[in-house]
């Protein structure tokens, strides 16, 4: 699921710190705005926009953090609005709903652990590529040189 790969160049200390911060940003946002699925995406997006002109290593990891958050937004939003409709509308709790929430928790937990691991590794300057998201980031984020 997670691969350690050789980056095209050796990132400096400052770059590793910034790249690691992009993952930390989403972690902090998850803790702060837990029930709202949009908060962590917004935090990562703001950090991404702020680092658009940064070095390749930083941009690459900001993009990976953003792309991963984007897909989580869909499943989290669906779960969030389903819960809201149960609380405030006529929807009732079904086995299907509980199964969905458990699936969402499993995926979020996996993403949470992967984010912590990646934040630690990128801080050391190690390039970590995620399953699917890493390949997707390679297409979106290109080296300027």
């Amino acid at each position: 699921m997670i691969q350690i790969k050789q980056f095209s160049y050796e990132p400096s200390e400052h770059e590793a710190e910034s790249a690691s911060s992009s993952y930390l940003m989403s972690l902090i946002a998850i803790i702060v705005g837990l029930p709202l699925p949009i908060v962590n995406l917004l935090a990562t997006l703001i950090f991404y926009l702020g680092n658009r002109k940064s070095t390749y290593f930083v941009r690459w990891h900001c993009t990976q953090a953003l792309v991963s958050q984007l897909s989580m937004l869909f499943i989290n939003s669906y779960g969030f609005w389903w819960t809201i409709s149960i609380i405030f509308a006529e929807e009732t709790i079904t086995s299907n709903y509980i199964a969905y929430i458990i699936a969402v928790i499993i995926f979020n937990l996996t993403e949470f652990i992967a984010t912590i691991y990646t934040a630690i590794q990128t801080r050391k300057g190690i390039h970590v590529e995620w399953w699917f998201y890493g390949a997707l980031t390679n297409i979106i984020c290109k080296s300027k040189s």
């Binding site: 709790i93 299907n96 199964a99 699936a103 499993i106």
Partner: peptide, 23 residues
């Protein structure tokens, strides 16, 4: 393919969990 597997994995997990009578 990787994207499709990820999506399938999510829906597969959901489907498998939905077989249990959580109520």
């Amino acid at each position: 393919i990787q994207g499709a597997i990820t999506i399938l994995l999510f829906f597969g997990t959901w489907f498998a969990l939905a077989q249990i009578d959580w109520i």
